[in-house]
């Protein structure tokens, strides 16, 4: 039982990171109908930016995080303004390939920095002692991930429900034409969506840093986050987050209970099953239940 709980908490923590990246996929998709294939690279770039500000420039960690996230939000907005906006009205594939290419450019630029390509890095100090609750040992990094994810999810919920900007962004993703007619600046909302998407990915990268360290391949986690986004229905923010946590937990428990090797198959089997049974995602399936 204890082992079960132990593995469960690790699964939830990793699942939160999947969920956050999935959230960034969905946020962008809802607002702009573009699937961004550079979220993994944004995640990595965000982590490296904060590392550079902290270890390279010598800023204190909190300031480096704030400034780094600000820069990444700015990068997201800047990319939308300069490049991604031009893909509007083009076939879907254009925007997808554009994000893919931008991701490759970010990776390529980073490999040109010797310190980045030649070793792995740790942000701040090595982890402290684990927190003990009875027999349960909780890693501070895992607790931080779970806490920070809850905080971000809460802040996003407030933003979308109770601020004019959030409402405008929602309106824009529900029906851009109607939103434009009611005076919502649709173009500015697109910029906002890309900025938030980049910021969220970078934030996920920071949460991942104490667990897997900062290195060039850390963006590969997006490969797990994308199924979570699809599982959540690509259109539901809460669905994406929940699906991320769900995948993390299932993956961890499968490693414990199922035969050797099953662990890595389970998330994708689940994804296939869910797509067959609920083609619009688990989020919409739950919504339908409620509507009934």
């Amino acid at each position: 039982m204890l082992t079960f709980l132990q593995v469960l908490t690790s699964g939830i923590a990793i699942g939160c990171v999947y969920g956050l990246v999935a959230l960034s996929f969905v946020l962008i998709y809802k607002a702009t109908e573009t699937i961004s294939f550079m979220q993994g690279d944004l995640l990595m770039l965000g982590a490296f930016t904060v590392l550079a500000l902290n270890a390279g420039v010598g800023l204190p960690l909190w300031l480096a995080i704030a400034l780094g996230l600000g820069l990444m939000v700015g990068l997201g907005a800047g990319l939308e303004r300069s490049v991604l906006r031009r893909a509007l009205g083009q076939p879907h594939l254009t925007a997808v390939l554009l994000t893919f290419g931008l991701g490759l450019m970010m990776r390529g630029a980073l490999t040109a920095v010797p310190a980045a390509s030649h070793s792995m890095h740790r942000l701040g100090q090595p982890a402290d002692e684990a927190l003990r609750l009875g027999g349960l040992a909780l890693a501070p990094a895992h607790l931080m991930v779970i806490g920070a994810t809850l905080l971000v999810a809460g802040a996003l919920a407030l933003f979308f429900r109770h601020t004019r900007l959030g409402l405008a962004l929602r309106a824009c993703s529900e029906d851009p034409r109607a939103a434009a007619l009611s005076g919502v600046p649709v173009a500015a909302m697109h910029t906002l969506a890309w900025a938030l998407g980049a910021g969220l990915a970078a934030f996920a990268g920071l949460l991942l840093a104490p667990i897997t360290f900062i290195h060039l391949n850390m963006g590969l986690i997006a490969l797990k986050a994308f199924p979570a986004a699809v599982l959540g229905g690509m259109s539901s923010l809460s669905g994406a987050l929940a699906a991320g946590v769900f995948l993390g937990v299932v993956e961890a428990l499968a490693g414990l209970a199922l035969p050797e090797g099953a662990k890595d198959m389970v998330p994708y089997l689940l994804l296939m099953g869910a797509l067959l049974l609920f083609p619009n995602g688990l989020g919409s399936a739950a919504g339908r239940e409620r509507a009934r």
Partner: peptide, 14 residues
């Protein structure tokens, strides 16, 4: 590229 080793370690410990 795996990120989490909790289930593997739990298995080995068991």
């Amino acid at each position: 590229g795996a990120t989490d080793f909790s289930s593997q370690i739990a298995r080995l410990r068991a």
